[in-house]
Design a protein around this nucleic acid. Structure first.
Ligand SMILES: [Mn+2]
Ligand SMILES: [Mn+2]
Ligand SMILES: [Mn+2]
Ligand SMILES: [Mn+2]
Lengths: 236, 236
DNA sequence: CTCTTTATTTAGGCATGACTAAATTTTTAT
DNA sequence: ATAAAAATTTAGTCATGCCTAAATAAAGAG
C-alpha cells in the first residue's frame, strides 16, 4: 500500500520530470513537497529500494516505468476531481487544487474510472492541463502555443495555464482572463517581452506582463473560417 | 489537524455510543477499528487529553460535545459520499462503504456542503441511514419500525438497513430485497421469530430468518389509499 | 468472600516520516 | 588548481500509531 506521503513525492517528481526531462534534484523535490532536503533524501533512498525510481546519489532521481505509472494515476485522479469540483459543484478554478490534493489519494480504480465516465471522459482539467487516461498516458489534445510565441494579429483563445498556482489564477481573474477568453496579440515589446493585446469587445489595448504571456496556452480562436479567405490572411 | 486514524476512532465511538448509549468499552472500539485493545487504550488516553472524550480508566469512554460534533461531521461526509457513489456513479449499495471510508477523511467544509447541495440535501444514505446535516445533528426522518415489530397484514416498504455490512447487503440481494421493496408480514412464528412474508406480485409466501427481520427498517407502503376502502382492509 | 476469568492498562519495541545539525560531495569562482 | 559556496547525505531526535507480552484491575463463579 502507498502512503499519502509517498504518493505526493512521486507526483512531485513526475511534475518536475515533465518540464526539464533530465534528472530531478533533491532540493527541487523538497521544495515541491514542502519538506527539507534531508527528509527528501531519506525518502528518495526508500523509493529507490522499492523500485519506483532510480537514484544516482548526489545527482538526482528519475522515475522508473513502474513509478511513472503510479504517478500518472495520481495525476489522473487529481485532475478528474478538479473537473468534478468545478463542473458539478460550482467551485472556481482557483479553489480546487487543495481539495483535489486530498481526493487524489483515494486510490480505487473502479471509483476513478466511473468518475471519468460520469465527467464524460474529459481531456483537460479546469486549468487546461491534460488528463491522463486509464492507461496511464496523457490523452491526446490539440496543439497549443504559449501566448508569447503565438502569431500576431490573429484571434486566439486561452485553452490552458502553465503551472497555475492559485495566486496566478486569481491574478488572471483580476485581468479578466479565464479559459475561453479570446484575444489578439498586436505587438511584442522588445524591451522585456510584454505583449500588447486586444480583447474582442473592448476598444482599449492592454499590456500583459511577460510572466503572464509565458504562462498562457492559446489556440486559434475559430476552427471555422480556416482557408475560406486565404487572401485576407495574407494581407494582414 | 485530525489524522485519519483519530477520525476513524471518533467515528467508531460515535457508532457504538448511538446503540447502547452508556460508556463505550475499549475492546468494542478496538474491534471496530480493527486494532488491539492495547493500541486502543493508548489512543483513548490521547483523545481524552485533547478533549474529544471523557475517559474513565477501566470503565470506558464517552464523547464530549466537541468530540461528538467532530464524529458527526465525519459520518455526514461518509454518508453523503455513499449517496454520490450510488446515485451518480452507479455503484451498488454493497460496494460503496469501503470507498466512502476513505473519502470521508477529506475534511473541507466547503466541499461537504456543496456536495450536499449537489445531491439535493438527502436525508438518507443508500442503506437508509440518516445523514447528519451541516449543524452536526441528524436530519429528521419519518418514523420507522423494525420489520419484526411491524403490524401484520399491512403492506410495508423497506426504508433502511440496520448495521448493514456488505455481506448482509449481498444476502439481501439474494433474497431480492432492496430499499423500496414492498412486502406484507402474514405471521410471526413463535419458535424463533421467523417471519412469513408475502411480496405483492408473487404468489408464494417466503420465510425470513429473524436475523433478517431484525435488521430491516420498514414503513407503511402507501400514504395514498389510506381510508378510502376501510371495509376491504378489515376483511383481510 | 475468595478464586478465577476477563478487560484494561503498562512496558518495551518497531516502522514511518518529519526535523536540525554536521559531514561530505559536487559545483562554481578565482 | 584550489578555495569557497552550494547541494546532498548522514547522524541523531522526535511524534504517531501500531504491535506483543506482562502487570493490574474489574467482574463473575463458587
Ligand atoms: Mn496530495
Ligand atoms: Mn489542475
Ligand atoms: Mn475512514
Ligand atoms: Mn451507509
Amino acid at each position: 500500500m502507498l502512503t499519502v506521503s509517498v504518493e505526493n513525492y512521486l507526483k512531485a517528481i513526475l511534475h518536475l520530470q515533465v518540464e526539464g526531462d533530465d534528472l530531478v534534484s533533491t532540493t527541487a523535490i523538497a521544495q515541491k513537497v514542502a519538506s527539507t532536503p534531508a527528509s527528501t533524501s531519506a525518502m528518495l533512498a526508500k523509493l529507490g529500494e522499492r523500485g519506483w525510481l532510480e537514484h544516482q546519489p548526489y545527482h538526482g532521481v528519475r522515475l522508473t516505468k513502474k513509478g511513472h505509472r503510479v504517478a500518472m494515476d495520481i495525476l489522473r485522479r487529481h485532475r478528474l476531481w478538479e473537473c468534478f469540483l468545478v463542473d458539478h459543484l460550482g467551485f472556481e478554478w482557483d479553489q480546487v487544487h487543495e481539495i483535489a490534493e486530498e481526493l487524489e489519494h483515494v486510490g480505487s480504480v473502479e471509483l476513478t474510472n466511473r468518475l471519468d465516465a460520469f465527467l464524460g471522459f474529459p481531456k483537460l482539467d479546469p486549468h487546461g492541463d491534460v488528463i491522463p487516461g486509464p492507461n496511464g498516458r496523457f490523452r491526446s489534445v490539440a496543439a497549443r502555443t504559449l501566448l508569447t510565441e503565438a502569431p500576431r494579429n490573429l484571434e486566439l483563445v486561452v485553452v490552458g495555464v502553465v503551472d497555475g498556482g492559485d495566486a496566478f489564477l486569481r491574478h488572471l481573474g483580476v485581468l479578466g482572463i479565464q479559459l475561453g477568453t479570446r484575444m489578439t496579440v498586436l505587438e511584442r515589446l522588445s524591451f522585456d517581452g510584454s505583449l500588447h493585446v486586444k480583447y474582442p469587445e473592448e476598444e482599449e489595448v492592454q499590456l500583459l506582463a511577460p510572466s503572464v504571456g509565458q504562462r498562457l496556452w492559446v489556440d486559434q480562436s475559430s476552427p471555422a473560417p480556416e482557408i475560406l479567405f486565404p487572401e485576407e490572411e495574407d494581407l494582414q
